[in-house]
Design a protein around this nucleic acid. Sequence first.
DNA 1: GATCCCATTCTGGGATACCAAATTGGTATC
DNA 2: GATACCAATTTGGTATCCCAGAATGGGATC
Lengths: 220, 220
Amino acid sequence: MSQMQNVERQLREMILGLEIGPGERLTERWVESRFGASRTPVRAALLRLETEGLICRDGRGWTVSPINLAELEQIAVYREAVEVAALRLTCTLQDRSAVEIIEGMLDSCDDKTPREEWHRVGMDFHIELARLSGNEFLFRAVRDAMTRLSRARWLEVRDEAALGRAWAEHHAILSAVRAGDADSAARLLSAHIIGSRDRLVTSLRNDRRGLRARGFAVVA
Amino acid sequence: MSQMQNVERQLREMILGLEIGPGERLTERWVESRFGASRTPVRAALLRLETEGLICRDGRGWTVSPINLAELEQIAVYREAVEVAALRLTCTLQDRSAVEIIEGMLDSCDDKTPREEWHRVGMDFHIELARLSGNEFLFRAVRDAMTRLSRARWLEVRDEAALGRAWAEHHAILSAVRAGDADSAARLLSAHIIGSRDRLVTSLRNDRRGLRARGFAVVA
DNA sequence: GATCCCATTCTGGGATACCAAATTGGTATC
DNA sequence: GATACCAATTTGGTATCCCAGAATGGGATC
């Protein structure tokens, strides 16, 4: 694997895992020494992460993208459009047996499953559901949107009830898809996305001071 | 303006203007000498164009992305999802006076307008319409999709009637938006996008041999 | 003590040198 | 004439060096 891919992957994981906080400054030299690569692959990796929205330019330098509440709301609208479109497309397919795999993914989580795993499965549910549509662009759009939402979802304070609620909503959506009921599935998915957005933004808005105290930039 | 942006912009224009044909091989050294920049900005520019889908990796090297008919069909589905979502969003806005600007854009084209300008305005119509929604992600999605479609639309054989038809459809969509009739606008836009797709793919499929004879790679 | 200014440091942007792998072209062999 | 093989060349990947401009910090001045 090339140095560029190495740096890109590791840096992405550090950012998504909040090991580098939203709003923190980055210098190419720091990344260079941190991962033992030279500046050429480092710069290539930074350029790629910039297009993913994980880092952004800050004048001449680089900054880990802050959590942006207005952006989170816009992403939810975007997600709703592409995810519902993908879902409707999937409902028109003859062979929808792949929903079983996603169902199995959900069922692999139980009370003993660590929070981190719930988080990952919750994201993968949406990504894999979009992949079923067979449309590469809808799939990528959902995957990229989930990447952008990832850190915020991780910061969200979620109780057991909220996790169970999401789990139930995911299952309900799959049931509708399996039945081929596109309208119901779409309605459930829309409600799920918008509901999640509202809880997410509310949670972050309430915790804004605490998050800032932890050194995380949360804007708008 | 930086060298990277220079190379990126000029190379993008060469690719979109078909000065470099779909499927042609690119070497970093050629780009380097062609634009008088060194490899560092050239590589940065290539990485960015790769994320735009205008070039793609070909083993170790670079290739100008071929025209991919299957991809064009998928993009149309993607476009339909995001453009309709943006349109519906726009219809909910109080102030939709900006549609007048787009209308003026359309009306700036007449019989004497060169074909190239019709082409550009046809793309900008969709991009600017999406921008009105105020949702940055829907807007970018449409802009990126139009960029990916650009070369294919340019290759399409379109007669006067087809151009006039698109013009009329664009106007009908704007009228519905101005009236705030989201459902009608959405229906018209969907039909327009899918109709355009069918004509585009049919045209390219028929011309496939001719296009290949001109050195343009057209796959699937 | 506050403020202005200048030298130093640091940063990203660019250019270039080097390397390993892959491609290529030609030649020798069958 | 086809094919196998080897050397020269070319390629992208990487490391490193240089530069101009921005940021920084300390000291002089008021």
